[in-house]
Simulated assay, not measured.
Amino acid sequence: MQHSPAAEAAGTARATEPAEPVLPSRPLPCDSGLHTAYDTALLDLDGVVYAGGEAVPHAVDSLAAARESGLRLAYVTNNAARTPQTVAAHLTRLGVPAAAEEVITSAQAVARLIAEQVPRGARVLAVGADGLRVALEERGLTVVETADEEPAAVVQGYGGPAMEWGRLIEAAIAVQRGVPWFASNTDLTIPSGRGIAPGNGSAVEVVRIATRWLRTPPEPQVAGKPLPPMHRESILRTGARRPLVVGDRLDTDIEGAHAGRVDSLLVLTGVTDAAQLLAARPVHRPTYVARDLRSLLESQPEVTGDADSGFGCRGWLAHAGADQLTLEGDGDPVDGLRALCGAAWSAAGECRLDTENALARLGF
């Protein structure tokens, strides 16, 4: 179903449905610009396109140029609170023209998951905001407010700061009664303009705590990134054949790309910093690494070498020693970071490497 230009460049072309995803041991090269190697960019929003409600530097111009070149853009978010129409309007105000059809939310993914398991028109106790309610109704499901209305399913999605505690009580009672339990996503936290706030995963934990006394404690079926239902929803809605996942989080965006067996680009404009990238587990390692969305229009350099000779990228050479990473050379700091990724990922599991000095030299 999906094709991986990066895997092909690395000599490991993927079959239509490979048994296992290809896990990179270094950032991979792409001789052409990413906008020509892929047909659709599946872009995360917060930390990639905008931050605190405002556009990330270079995002507006880069996305406009990528679209003009023929790359299709789709915006994939775990936030179930807002409708696609609201998200598209926000993007358009920022200077990134978008249609509702180009926005895929975890609310849509979980609504499809529920609709596949209950009859059309079934009652669903929804604990969340408008985005979740609209997605359920679009699937022909009937939204109800309480556990006493005999729902066929209960679903939680991020409800925003105005969500009432009573909604969680209704969800907990329904789950205690054996009603199938769903969640749009389980992100414990979300970024806000004032700091880190509790996410939908925190609300899911409240219901879990309230039901853990049961003989068999229930677990929700989760749709959002990094799990397959979200990637499936993105592919079904976009029709992408050569998608590239673009994100700023290792445990949602990048892991989700691995779960979907497609390539990924990590941009350093969001929550993941350079030290976290170097320490990434195999399923959290992106195909490509870049500073920001300008990389969609650029080729990706090759990281050469091995553990013995060191890992080079353009003017940089990185080695993994007994207990630390070392770096020599000069040039673009992101190229130095790519070389460090090769060295750190090759040594992963052998020791905990000290990365502070090497990263300080790059300004990270």
Rank of each mutant, 00 (worst) to 15 (best):
L71S: 04
R72M: 02
R72K: 15
N79W: 04
T83V: 08
V87S: 12
A89P: 03
H90P: 09
L94N: 14
L94K: 11
A100R: 11
I104P: 15
I104G: 12
I104L: 04
S106T: 07
A109K: 09
A111Y: 06
I114M: 04
R120E: 15
A122R: 10
L125Y: 03
L125T: 09
L125V: 06
A126Y: 03
V127K: 05
R133M: 02
E137L: 06
L141M: 09
L141G: 10
E145H: 14
A147I: 10
D148Y: 04
E150D: 15
P151T: 10
P151E: 09
V154D: 07
V155N: 09
W165K: 05
G166D: 08
L168E: 03
L168I: 06
I169F: 00
E170R: 15
E170A: 14
A172E: 10
I173G: 02
A174F: 05
V175H: 01
V175N: 05
Q176L: 09
R177N: 13
V179I: 08
W181H: 06
A183P: 00
S184H: 01
N185A: 10
T186K: 12
L188Q: 14
T189V: 12
R194D: 02
A203K: 04
V206E: 01
V207P: 01
V207F: 03
I209T: 15
